[in-house]
Design a protein around this nucleic acid. Structure first.
Length: 469
RNA sequence: CGGGGCGUAGCGCAGCUUGGUUAGCGCGCCUGGUUUGGGACCAGGAGGUCCCCGGUUCGAAUCCGGGCGCCCCGACCA
């Protein structure tokens, strides 16, 4: 146990704790322009792991990666009325370039539906070209008034998928496939974050979509975080960009498009969903470093033993590093704890004399004595059990902080510390305004059994409401 | 845009009310040494346009005027 806390305790000031973790785990710094973010190597390594896991899942659905330009003609945005209306306040616009005032302003992409729509129209001729399944990894810019590292920055990194389909049904099914097989699977299995899946109410829908689906996670302070979204765009963008195809009967028909994204906000979600007063806790399947091996004393035989253990772990497929830090043992331990590395192997002379090492779990703090030769065999099992427990713990915390209520005032009360679930009929309209007045939003709509509705017009829906990031 | 607060070393701050020699403190950093089983200690050291411009004054971090920037609350927006 740390003798004194290095970080502001969560219970004292959760936002401050978050800032402390981001700084002390060396994840990110504020950029020179307000709202921008410098992602440091450790933060970026975590993002790269997220990218890899998400990218694999995206490709498994048949989508391919491509790249579209950062600069978009302003006129493109204007082609879809809802889209431009929704994004106008957040746009960064280039008016001068090459030393001259531009004839037409250029928008720095806030999202790429419009450029991609333009090219989909060009590439799609026949039903044989469908579905067209594209994804890109890119940066986007949405000017933020209240930036917070990872959670809301004016520039952020994400993946955005864009697809075109011959039918409404096909588009709807694909958007759901992405939602379940890419996002929800990643969040549950890798990030160890349980999710509420549902659709956004009209007030929270993506600008230009006919339906927005969300994965809502609960942070340790009981607030909600939208961790990924998938949109059915209907034929809105197809109309605006003339995305037509010739069907089997030789008739011209409008495509149905989708878009879906997950961003560096996930890093913020990771921090707040799992962190404790000692820092970050990274789920083993995600962790860039799963095990750190630390010499308790910098003596040659101890260092040698560390190196052998590192080699054996690496041979077992574990992502492992040998601590190269300077300073006291306690300091090094604390630094790795803040970074949330799942397992720590402590190697000291006293251990070595008995042929053992001490393995410490980041989640529980439990210390386990293991024979040196047993480490490589046991570590993968410990990591898997930790992965499962982290998800289970998060699920229990979430369930315990989700309250079924029947009135708006009860929902306001419950949302002070978690989620409230109640009939959508009770909230829809004046109730939603009343909640918004208390900084509470409708996070998603679900069927009574918790499943994904087809649309917000379905009868008998329930809603989850909460304060949100 | 409205209300409040703040700009002093890399970070966090004191000093300002009541102007005065060399602008301090904690953390961090550098050097040397002792240390190392849960943020070690000692000694020495480096590091400053006191946000900017102007004014008052023999003298301004400190007082006055203007500007810029940042933070919080509200508003707006997703």
């Amino acid at each position: 146990m740390a003798s004194q806390s290095v970080l502001t305790p969560q219970a004292e000031d959760f936002p401050r704790w978050y800032q402390d973790v981001v700084a002390k785990a060396e994840m990110a710094d504020n950029g020179p322009v307000r709202g921008t973010m410098v992602i440091r190597p450790y933060g970026y390594a975590i993002w790269e792991r997220m990218q890899s896991e998400i990218d694999t899942r995206i490709k498994a659905t048949g989508a391919q990666n491509a790249y579209f330009p950062l600069f978009i003609p302003e006129s493109y945005l204007s082609k879809e009325a809802m889209h431009i209306e929704g994004f106008s306040p957040e746009l960064a616009v280039v008016t001068h370039a090459g030393g001259e005032k531009l004839a037409e302003p250029i928008v720095v992409r806030p999202t790429s539906e419009t450029v991609i729509g333009e090219f989909m129209a060009k590439w799609i001729q026949s039903y044989r070209d469908l579905p067209l399944l594209l994804n890109q990894w890119a940066n986007v810019v949405r000017w933020e008034l209240r930036p917070r590292l990872f959670l809301r920055s004016s520039e952020f990194l994400w993946q955005e998928g864009h697809t075109a389909h011959a039918s409404y049904e096909d588009a709807a099914a694909y958007a759901r496939q992405i939602h379940n097989d890419v996002y929800d699977d990643f969040l549950n299995e890798v990030l160890a974050v349980p999710t509420y899946l549902g659709i956004k109410p009209p007030s929270e829908r993506f600008a230009g979509a006919i339906n927005t689906m969300t994965c809502e996670g609960m942070m340790r302070d009981g607030k909600a975080l939208q961790m990924a979204t998938s949109h059915e765009l209907g034929q809105n963008f197809a109309k605006a960009f003339d995305i037509f195809f010739q069907n089997e009967d030789g008739q011209a028909a409008l495509c149905h498009t989708t878009s879906w994204g997950a961003s560096t906000r996930l890093v913020g979600g990771l921090i707040m969903a799992h962190g404790d007063d000692n820092g970050l806790i990274v789920p083993p399947r995600l962790a860039p470093t799963q095990v750190v091996v630390i010499a308790v004393r910098d003596e040659p035989e101890v260092i040698d033993a560390c190196a052998r253990i590192v080699a054996s772990l690496r041979g077992a497929g574990v992502r492992v590093v040998q601590d190269q830090g300077r300073g006291s043992f306690g300091r090094r331990v604390t630094d790795w704890e803040i970074k949330g590395v799942p397992l720590r192997v402590e190697v000291g002379p006293r251990d070595l004399a008995q042929g053992v090492v001490t393995v410490v779990r980041r989640d529980s703090g439990e210390k386990i004595a293991l024979g040196i030769d047993a480490v490589a065999g046991e570590a993968p099992r410990l990591l898997e059990s930790m992965q499962d427990l982290m998800f289970e713990d998060a699920r229990q915390r979430r369930d315990a902080a989700t309250h079924d209520v029947s009135t708006v005032p009860e929902a306001i009360e419950a949302a002070q510390s978690g989620f409230a679930r109640l009939a959508w009929d009770v909230v829809s309209g004046a109730g939603e305004e009343q909640l918004n007045g208390e900084a509470i939003t409708v996070r998603c709509l679900q069927r009574a059994d918790g499943s994904m509705p087809a649309s917000d017009t379905e009868g008998g829906l329930t809603c989850l409401v909460a304060k949100a990031y």
